[in-house]
């Protein structure tokens, strides 16, 4: 079995998120780190590899991003991935979710993985949809918000978190699985793994290497465009109900909810 894990370099959690008003993109300057949600996907891959139920030949970390994104790949291999692929090209700058998903899928096509794992969201763009987009391009089944994953020969048995509880779903491989952060506690890399990360194979590819059509990526190849960015409307002051008589207070709260049709 081959597992590919999609990872992303994002601004460090300690850096305040800002929008660059001229480009209308997230300002990604400053300290950067591996997307913390992706560390759960790497850990899930390592647990499959170390679990011994199936034979995992290799775990490959894949990212698309600027030159600096190699650091996210170093972190990914220090956490256990066997090698990594860095898709980087000026033509990719400004790609929206769909264009990014297409480009990543082209890399994955070459790798022919049995399982693609990724975190539920990126800590910067937070689109949540990358797994589904990639799966659509690869014609693979996909699950999101997976918080438990048992691998069997040729299939996975997953629990996914839903608003109403948990779904237990069986899915045939190959598949694309977006994992929730409740699935595991990611390990920390040992000093030896940190120092050894640079020695692991890292392949850098441009769009031509991966057969990516230039007019389907980048700002020009994206189907969405950001017209303007506005702050959310200020919250209105709430209504404070003094609890002088509990029965009366409950009645007021129920009326307030009924007026807004919030009670079934």
């Amino acid at each position: 079995m081959k597992i590919c894990v999609l990872v992303k370099e994002v601004p460090d959690a300690a850096v305040e998120k800002r929008i660059d008003q001229s480009s209308k993109r997230i300002d990604r300057s400053g300290e950067k780190n591996l997307n913390p949600f992706d560390t759960h996907a790497i850990e899930a891959a390592m647990q499959v590899k170390e679990g011994g139920v199936v034979d995992v030949e290799e775990v490959v970390a894949v990212t698309m991003g600027p030159e600096s994104a190699f650091r996210a790949l170093h972190k990914a291999v220090s956490l256990g991935a066997d090698r990594s692929i860095h898709l980087t090209d000026d033509a990719l700058a400004g790609s929206d979710c769909c264009a990014t998903g297409y480009a990543l899928a082209k890399i994955l096509e070459e790798e022919s993985p049995d399982l693609v794992l990724l975190g539920q969201q990126s800590d910067d763009g937070e689109c949540y949809t990358m797994g589904a987009i990639v799966a659509d391009h690869l014609r693979m089944p996909s699950l999101t918000q997976v918080i438990k994953m048992d691998v069997e020969e040729g299939k996975l048995r997953c629990e996914r978190q839903a608003e109403y509880g948990y779904d237990t779903v069986e899915i045939q491989l190959p598949a694309v699985i977006s994992v929730g952060d409740a699935i595991n506690e990611p390990r920390y890399p040992s000093l030896k793994a940190i120092m050894g990360a640079k020695k692991k194979q890292l392949d850098t590819k441009g769009i031509a290497d991966a057969g990516i059509e230039a007019d389907r990526v980048g700002e020009g190849g994206s189907r969405t465009s950001v017209l303007s960015i506005n702050p959310p409307p200020a919250k209105q002051a709430g209504e404070i109900i003094e609890d002088e008589d509990t029965n009366e207070t409950v009645g007021k709260i129920v009326s307030w909810l009924e007026e807004r049709k919030l009670l079934a």
């Binding site: 650091r71 170093h74 920390y188 120092m195 990360a197 640079k198």
Partner: peptide, 15 residues
């Protein structure tokens, strides 16, 4: 160096 930065970041996160 990159490795030293990685050690520092890992130490900060873990601790």
């Amino acid at each position: 160096t990159d490795d030293q930065q990685a050690i520092k970041r890992t130490a900060k996160d873990l601790l």
